[in-house]
Amino acid sequence: MVSIEINSQTLTAHLSGDIDHHTAAAMRTEIDRAVKSAPIDKLILDFSNVSFMDSSGIGLVMGRYKLINELGGKLIVADPPAYIAKVMKLSGIGRLCEIINTVRR
């Protein structure tokens, strides 16, 4: 599931639940629709409430990087749980975007 929050020129997509091949497609559509309809220069993907992610989530991040990059903006990945951070590290996705850890709510 995705909930979208827009603050000034930053769009935050709060992702929750499982990210796998089955769920990633709907998440992708929802995020892209929001990104294309708002004048933003920063996209934050908030992973703090993601309960599971396999490499489909890496595809999701890579695809959103491509989109925001084409629009001249920046992508940030926020608060991936420890083992999801491990999948991200393995993929080398940190070279495309900043991975940050904010204070846990």
Partner: peptide, 14 residues
């Protein structure tokens, strides 16, 4: 085109 990252086997191995 389906945004497959090509990391399935790398994840399984790791």
């Amino acid at each position: 085109e389906e945004e497959r990252a090509g990391l399935g086997f790398a994840v399984m191995e790791s």
